[in-house]
Amino acid sequence: MLHKWYNNTLTEDELKEFKLRDEYDDLVKIKENTDHLETPTFDKEKMLTAILNDSTKNKPSNVIKLHWFKYAAAITILIASTIFFWPNDKITKFNTSHGDYVSAEFPDNSIFELQGNSSLKFDKETWSQKRIVFLEGNAIFEVVKGPEFLVKTQNGDVRVLGTKFEVNESMDTLEVSCYEGNVEVNIFTKKITEQLLANEKLLSVGESTIIQKSELVKLKSVTLNQLIQELQQTFDVIINKSNININEKLSCNFQKQNLANALETSIKTLGINYSIENNTVTLTK
């Protein structure tokens, strides 16, 4: 009833009844006095002009507008030995200190999120022809379709055509996580070529490489300790490794579906026996 009155949809009879209420006078006062209130004004046309002339707006071609995100892009990662020299005058640079976080856009609306303790720089002027980013540390990229997009790090390069992925590099480590689209990683020094799909990940630390695919995990020259860590994480088990030399090196693959099969194709290759009890695996020589 109150709502009907408030929205002026009461019938005459209903209105008569409503008027008998104690609070009617107050309500009318409130309603009448708030009927013609006006908020502060602002210059709309000026704002509109500012928006339409916004220089950060770029208009990609129609195909890109509608479908860029659908393009599963191929990405190539190259380990390059060249060091890049940058002219200092026209470089845009971002730095983050520990615990810091910066999110910003490149001139073409591609997005990056720079994590703590990282630095990122790129050349604004040549961006439209060649998109090159020099990265130290950790950043997430979301790239719109366009010319070659290259992330250069001291451990290797990432080439992108349009996808979302993360590159984390430090010292002798390269970590690539693919969130959308797909990625091809080439590590020439290790002779590794690997396609990463969404939610897959490659980690290269020193000599060893760990590749987490959706179905299986590939390990190359890892220590037994690293293998055990991977198995524990993948199958959510505890692995009891007393009496075993955990620094022994090996290469192996294991499927993610079945723990016994995985142990068979990994641990067994080192001549180590295992027994499974509930959530605990015990390794014996």
Binding site: P40, F42, M47, L48, A50, I51, L52, D54, T56, K57, P60, K65, L66, N109
Partner: peptide
């Protein structure tokens, strides 16, 4: 806050303009 209201209005429409295609 009138100024803040102005800023946010502008930012919101700016974002719409930038993403007009999607």
């Amino acid at each position: 806050d009138k100024e803040q209201a102005k800023d946010i209005t502008q930012e919101a429409f700016m974002k719409l303009w930038q993403n007009c295609a999607s």
